[in-house]
Design a protein around this nucleic acid. Sequence first.
DNA 1: AACGCGGGGAG
DNA 2: CTCCCAGCGTT
Length: 326
Amino acid sequence: MLDGGASAASGLEKSLLDWYRRYQRPLPWRGEHDPYRILLAEVLLQQTRVAQAIPYYHRFLERFPTLEALGRAPLEEVLRVWQGCGYYTRARNLHRLARQTSALPPTYAGLRELPGLGPYTAAAVASIAFGEAVAAVDGNVRRVLSRLHAWEDPSPKRLQQSAQGLLEGALGYGSPGEWNQALMELGATVCTPRRPACSRCPLERFCRGKGQPERYPLPKSRRPKPIELTALILGGPMGVYLEPRSGGVLGGLWGVPMEEGPGGLERLLKRFGLEEARFVGRLRHDFTHRRLQVWVYQAPWARVEDPRRRPLSRLDQKILSLLDTA
DNA sequence: AACGCGGGGAG
DNA sequence: CTCCCAGCGTT
């Protein structure tokens, strides 16, 4: 590498890579070369914190060690391993991907065609698994770059261009995959959403936003919508009646019958030809954009099954657990 | 561009 | 309590 050449890493790029090599967290997928495992980690990490993803990473690989093993498995079994992790479209897409592909394409463009791989995940896998020089911009990178440039609300295009420029500046000193992960790691551990540790940041002297980090980027707030539900547990501790959920909400999983809004209990009773049901409790469950309040009732039923045999959402697990406490 | 989609942990 | 996370697909 020639000194001072355009291909040499500038101070910023070298500072971050030196920091990353010293302070990166030891994670299960660090140093991994198997593209399938790298893909799995990236999909699990979509909108999901590292600590939450790690147990699922291990148990998923234990059950589906290869892309072929995943493709051979029934979807319902894949969902059962994924249950409790949220965003179940990820599991459905991963299964669909495994069914249609025997080997992952080694380029960003090829990966981008696969179900469940958007701009971020395709770039992450292309760079980390295959060494392609494409910038991966996730929420961490968006925050780091917003602060670095003092941008309050940068467009995705602007962020991508900035990230790509930095990555290319870093090529002389580190690999694309290492650089992308370094930027994300900084956002996850130092340049955090609230109370960032600027004094420990290797980029502090390059950062235009360090004076007021909370301002870059500006937070976007959205109020969750309150929803009232009535749930009916048919059966008892030995077994319950479950039905498959269709549509976007918890689709592909199973759950107890539920109705939304006033008169929910009456509609449920009518649906199953019942006269009455016993009130067992009330619980709250929050999604990002919804605040659920669920009134739970119970009635005897003949056609029941073991709920452990079905993929259930956390919401349905909470509902059923009311039986144990009540 | 805006919205729906889970679940959990930090502060 | 609020915020938001190694985002994606649909409209």
